[in-house]
Design a protein around this nucleic acid. Structure first.
Lengths: 218, 218
DNA sequence: CCCGATACTGAGCGAGCGCTTAGCATGCCC
DNA sequence: GGGCATGCTAAGCGCTCGCTCAGTATCGGG
C-alpha cells in the first residue's frame, strides 16, 4: 500500500516524474476519475477521496482542478510523442519503422487506456492557453508519422495518393483504440498492436513481402 | 426564423420526426450544446436559452436532461444503422458495397459532425438502461459491416486474416471522423468519404483493379 | 361567455460544486 | 526545547446546478 507501482486499474506508472508523493497520488487518482467519468463529471472531492485525502489537500499541490488535467495531458502527450520518435528514429526500412511506430503507439493506447483516454478525449475541457500548448504537441505527433510515410513514398515502398489525409487516418485509427479497448475483452494490447501495424501497412500500400517481414518484433 | 430547416451550425435537420415543434427546438439546441461542451458541462438553462425558452419549459417536453441525450442517441444510432443497411443491401460486388457503406457512413459523421459527436462520444453519460439499449444498436451496426466483409472473403475478393478485428478497425476509423473533422478545414465530407473508402478497401486487401472501380459513385 | 386543457414563465428549493480559511500535527534547525 | 515552515483537515462560503411549482396567457368547444 505504501509503494504505489500500479493503479487500481493495474497499469504501469509512468508518473514517476511527479513529486512529491502526495502530488503524484492525487494526479493518479485524477487520471482514473477523469477516465471513468470525464473531467466535468468528476468532483474534486472524488479525486481527493481516491487519494485518501481531504478535498482541501488538492489545493496545496495544484492551483485548480484544471491544472491537474493540464499536467496529465502534457505528460501524456510527451510520452506519446517519445514513443513515436523512438520508433521513427530507429534503423530499418520505412515499412519496418511504420509498423514499429504503429504497434508501439497502439500498445500504449490499449495498455494505458485509462491515461490515453484522458489525454486524447478531454482536450476540450482545457482552457484556451493550455489547449494551445497541447495542440502544438499534437502537431509534432502528426509530423512524426507523416515523416515516416513520406520516407516510404520517396523510397518507392509505399503507394499513398494523399499523404496528409492518410497520416490523419492512421493517427485517428490508433488514437481511437483508447475509446473502444476493453481490458476484459479478448484482445491483448500486443495483439491489437500487431493487427493495426498490418492494417496500416496495407493502407499505405506496402507490398505483401515487405509487410509480412515487418511485424515480427515483440 | 419560423421554419427551422438548419441549425446554427448549418447542417441538415434529420429531426423532422420529433414533435411538437417546441420539443424539436429543444432537442436541436441540446445537440448543439452537448456537441460543443459535452453533456456534463451543458446546463439545462443553456439548452432552454438556445431554444428561446425559459429553463422550466424543458421539463414539459422531457422528464430529465438525460432523456434528451437518450432520445438524441437513439435517433442518431438508428439513422447511422439505416445508412449502413442501405449501402450494404444494394446490388454490387462486396468491394462496391463496402466502399459505398464506408463513404456514406463517413459523410454522415463529417457532415453531421455536431450530431455524430454527441451520438458517438456521450454514450457513457447515459444511465445503465439507456446505455444497454444503445449498445444493442451498436452491435447491429457492427454486424452490418462484418457481413459485407465476410461476403468479400467468401467471394475471394478480400484478404482478411482477422475479420472481427478488421471490422472493429474499420468502424473505429469511420467513427473517429466525428472527433477530428473540422467544417472550416480543407476537406469536404465527400472528399473524406472517398479517401476513407479507398483506405478501407486497402485494409481488406481488395485488389487494385476492383478498388479503382468501386469508389466512383457520388 | 365561460371552461378546462395546453404551453409556458418567474421564482426559487435543496443539493452539490470548486475552492478558501483557520487551525492542528509533525519534523527540522538552532 | 522553542520557533517556524510544511502538509494536512474540518468547516464552510458563495455559487450554480437540475428540477419544481404556483400562476398566467392562449385557445378550441359548448
Amino acid at each position: 500500500m505504501s509503494t504505489a507501482q500500479e493503479t487500481a486499474g493495474g497499469e504501469l506508472q509512468p508518473w514517476a516524474e511527479v513529486t512529491p508523493d502526495a502530488a503524484r497520488r492525487l494526479l493518479v487518482a485524477a487520471v482514473e476519475a477523469f477516465a471513468e467519468r470525464g473531467y466535468h463529471a468528476t468532483t474534486t472531492r472524488d479525486i481527493a477521496g481516491r487519494a485518501g485525502m481531504s478535498p482541501a489537500a488538492l489545493y496545496i499541490h495544484y492551483k485548480t482542478k484544471e491544472e491537474l488535467l493540464h499536467r496529465i495531458s502534457r505528460i501524456g502527450h510527451e510520452k506519446a510523442l517519445d514513443i513515436l520518435r523512438t520508433a521513427g528514429g530507429r534503423a530499418g526500412s520505412p515499412a519496418e519503422r511504420l509498423a514499429d511506430a504503429v504497434s508501439s503507439f497502439v500498445r500504449w493506447h490499449a495498455g494505458g487506456r485509462t491515461t490515453a483516454r484522458v489525454v486524447q478525449y478531454e482536450l476540450d475541457s482545457l482552457g484556451a492557453d493550455a489547449r494551445a500548448e497541447i495542440i502544438a504537441l499534437r502537431r509534432q505527433v502528426d509530423a512524426e508519422v507523416r515523416a515516416i510515410i513520406e520516407d516510404g513514398v520517396a523510397a518507392g515502398d509505399f503507394d499513398v495518393p494523399d499523404v496528409p489525409g492518410t497520416t490523419l487516418a492512421v493517427l485517428s485509427l490508433c488514437i481511437d483504440v483508447a475509446r473502444w479497448f476493453n481490458v476484459d475483452g479478448p484482445r491483448t494490447p500486443e495483439m491489437v498492436g500487431d493487427l493495426y501495424a498490418d492494417l496500416v501497412l496495407r493502407m499505405v500500400g506496402a507490398d505483401r513481402r515487405k509487410r509480412s517481414g515487418a511485424d515480427g518484433q515483440k
